[in-house]
Design a protein around this nucleic acid. Structure first.
Lengths: 138, 138
DNA sequence: CAAACTTTAATAACGATTCCTACTTTACAA
DNA sequence: TTGTAAAGTAGGAATCGTTATTAAAGTTTG
């Protein structure tokens, strides 16, 4: 039995690279539009399929669904996120919350198995805060 | 200018009550099925519309999208959640994480405005942990 | 080159949520 | 009560992000 090969086609590699090279936590469609010029016969289905595969393999993370679109993150190091309620931007937050440990232990005490933890803040990104200050002088 | 009247229909109240009385973090459809016997002409659109209104008013929270369905939470007190990867259950976690304060401050330091924070763990609920121990003895 | 396997493009299908219009209910006052 | 205008609703069609299907193209091995 030959060992299972993990074929890494050019397109698949490009999808992963695009996700790794941006900090915008993009949607599948954003990646698709990004790569389309270089790979004119790329299909959106391929982007979805490979993103799901990456997530199953732990190569990328999902930030969750924002305004109906699933947002992906190529940075697998644990970190928190801010989701802007106004423009939908997803920002990495520099600090990490170390005290999730207590929560993990408490959960395991109840009989749960914990695989991952995520911290998400909601509010306005700096850009939209400024906008609101400018025009929103009711 | 006459003051804006807030009509609080019987159905709207029932939707909110159903969400307040359960700890299951239900979907819109679950609430719909729950209330249908008592309100035979209730429509699913009404449930969606009112849940969105409640969320905008801060009366209920959204736990996020799990397996394609948005999950709601009638308990607005801050608390963490565990999402079971196997059965999709959403559990309240007893302990709260106090150290989000540092993260909030750091975010405001960058110029963000923070409205809310959420902590979500992913893994297996006690029920599914047991199941796995029983049959999954590979 | 040829066989066995993997990946892909294109498009159809899916399904949760939202939108639309006519109808019903509610609130408030006379 | 009863009028009535605003708010709410039912029902179903439309929307649209995502997934499944399928046949074709690419890749690896012998």
């Amino acid at each position: 039995m030959p060992p299972k090969r993990e074929n890494f086609s050019r397109k698949r590699a490009a999808i992963l690279a695009a996700l790794r090279e941006t900090k915008t936590h993009p949607t599948a469609e954003w990646i698709f539009r990004q790569l389309k010029p270089q790979y004119p016969d790329l299909s959106l289905g391929t982007v979805y399929r490979n993103l799901n595969r990456f997530r199953e393999n732990g190569l990328v993370l999902s930030v969750g669904v924002v305004d109906g679109y699933e947002r992906f993150d190529g940075n697998t190091a644990p970190h928190a996120h801010l989701i802007c309620k106004n423009c939908g931007a997803v920002l990495d937050l520099p600090a990490q919350v170390p005290e999730l440990k207590g929560l993990r232990q408490a959960s395991q005490g109840i009989g749960c198995r914990i695989d991952s933890a995520s911290v998400t803040l909601r509010g306005l990104c700096p850009c939209c805060v400024k906008k609101e200050e400018t025009d929103g002088a009711s």
